[in-house]
Amino acid sequence: MVIPVFLAGTDKTFWEWVVFLIQNNYMDFIKGAGRTLLIAAVGTILGCIIGFLVGIVQTIPLEPQDNIIKKIILKIVRAIMSSYVEIFRGTPMIVQAIVIYYGSLQMFGIDMTAMTAGFVVVSINTGAYMAESVRGGIDSIDVGQTEAAKAIGMTHFQTMLSIILPQALRNILPQIGNNLIINIKDTAVLNVISVNELFFTAKTLNGMYYNAFPVYFIACVVYFIMTFTCSRILRWYEKKIDGPDSYTLAGTGHTGVPVKKRPAGMTMQLMNRKYNEQRSAMR
């Protein structure tokens, strides 16, 4: 970090300050923004994994004929997961950060770096929120999808993996994006355990120059660039998953497998007409 050789004066205008800060401390901002992005991205990904695991376990169907051990284990696991969700949704992240960072050392002798603590806090926090989103996403899929998958012989696991979760994931993608954006902003609270992210950088620079407005203004712009870029990328990805609006008609009969053909000229329109004639004849 560049050490100022002068005290902040009134000899510079606001924009001159901004230019000065960018010229002298751009590396600090980039490093801070990088850490913010890293924690937010890793936290969102790990949080999604936690959320999916919890959400999936919460939606495992319990049949009356299942054996008693499966029932008991599932009930206990679910109780633990519900309390996890309630506790981490119900307490502020800033407090969780302090409790986990200092508590893990005092209670369990785990000496993790502030950065590691940051990853942990953001991940389990996101996981708690995502668990509910995933559960909602799974519940929102029509039961007919599950029945159709079961009817062709898929197991519960196969049904989940190839039919339900891809659709649930698409439905909750906007919420995952939301969580990423919230995480980019909320990593700012990690400054209480001195994680060297963007807000902490701004705080440090303010301490050096005693001029809050230009410093935090730059931080503000950097935060916005990050969140806006992420939201655009996610929007693009949503569209990509949905696939094209139109489809191409494929050329017919390229399989070479002999098939019993219906009579020539028996079009679907003709079939429909034939049916209607038969119906009238029935009356």
């Binding site: 007919g144 062709i152 012989g153």
Partner: peptide, 27 residues
């Protein structure tokens, strides 16, 4: 057993995340 006994539903229940061809291949 279910793999040997097919079912066609009133509400079709095609897999919405797959194309027509994938619907017929996945099982």
């Amino acid at each position: 057993y279910r793999a040997k006994v097919g079912m066609v539903f009133q509400q079709f229940n095609l897999f919405n995340n797959m194309t027509v061809l994938q619907n017929c291949m996945t099982g």
